[in-house]
Simulated assay, not measured.
Amino acid sequence: MRIKRNITARISYIKTRNKKFDKFLQRNEINDKDFNNFSVIDSKNILLKNFIHLLRLEELNEEIQMDHINFVKICSRYLFATTIKQDNEELIQNLEATIWKLVLENNYAYFVENLEEKVLNENEFEFSKIEVKKYFNFHKIYALIGNVFAAPFSVKERKSYYEYGYYLAMYLNLHNFINKNSVHDNVDMFLIKILVNKKTIQAISDLSPDFFNLFVIKNNKWINHINKRKLIKEAQEYEEKN
């Protein structure tokens, strides 16, 4: 009976959270019917799950942090919308306008360090200008995600939360690109993905030396559940339309 009650409570909580997100979209004049998951990778809510686990680890009230939770979700949608360049440019522009309005309202700009550029410059990767523009041009959105990850926590620890959110978003996006574009002949893409994953793990181990391994296990589990065939299909459908 206890398990059943826990499952029921969990379902109820998720429904309530989704309703609050729908209201959040309505307040910001975004049509929730158009605002479906832009990508199968986004539908797994990996960024959101990580953020909520961080809140719970510090025993922070999720209701109080709901604005931050909604912002993580909308940033995740925006990241993968720009990655696959959805046809609905108006919706993407509305998302971007809403995001920057919320940045100003919530003062999310704590850190601006370009970790994406730092990873590229610190290592001797060989990418063409076209590849850099295509795969490594997401600093602004990574930084936004990093800053909202940092927002609920103490000033002393914010930089580590920023780095974790930033590197996690970058890692997921690289995973997205590698599977969608079938870049199996580009060794450096795999090497940089491994490096970014290492930095993600380092960041969470700094934040939680006792529980970082649980984050690693959960992230691996969630990522392994991403349907690679669907990712490739998304890429093919986009190419056919364009």
Rank of each mutant, 00 (worst) to 15 (best):
K85R: 12
N70M: 03
R77V: 03
L54E: 15
D185E: 14
N106P: 10
E157N: 15
H139E: 00
A169R: 11
R10K: 14
L120Y: 00
N28Y: 05
C75F: 02
I11K: 12
V148C: 01
A81H: 02
N31T: 08
F215P: 05
E116I: 07
R158M: 05
I204Q: 02
L191D: 15
D34G: 10
K19I: 12
I145F: 11
E124I: 05
E131R: 09
D42Y: 08
A151C: 07
Y142S: 00
Q93W: 15
L214M: 10
E117L: 10
K85T: 03
S154H: 15
A109I: 12
K156F: 09
L195K: 10
K140T: 14
S154A: 11
F24P: 04
K15I: 14
E116Q: 13
L48D: 06
L102K: 15
M1G: 12
E29N: 14
A203S: 08
E116M: 03
N137F: 08
I201P: 06
V132F: 12
Y13T: 11
N224T: 03
F111N: 09
N50G: 09
V72Q: 04
F215D: 13
S154F: 10
L104A: 14
E240Y: 09
K241H: 07
I11M: 02
A169E: 13
N50H: 10
E234W: 06
K73W: 08
F38D: 11
R10H: 13
I145D: 13
D210V: 09
I52F: 04
N61W: 02
F111Y: 15
T200R: 15
K199N: 07
F190D: 07
V119N: 07
N197A: 10
M170Y: 12
S128P: 06
N179F: 02
K19G: 02
D32F: 11
K4Q: 14
L95N: 10
T83G: 00
K118H: 06
K129G: 09
N18Q: 12
R56C: 05
D188Q: 00
R158H: 02
K44R: 15
I11V: 13
I52H: 11
K156W: 11
L55H: 02
Q86I: 13
K49A: 11
V119I: 12
I226R: 03
S205V: 13
N37G: 00
K118P: 13
M189E: 05
K118R: 13
Y108V: 06
E126C: 08
E105A: 12
N181Q: 00
K85V: 00
L172T: 07
K180D: 01
F212P: 01
I178L: 03
L214G: 14
K44Q: 05
F190C: 07
I178Y: 08
N114E: 00
V119E: 07
I145K: 13
N45C: 01
N186Y: 06
K15C: 11
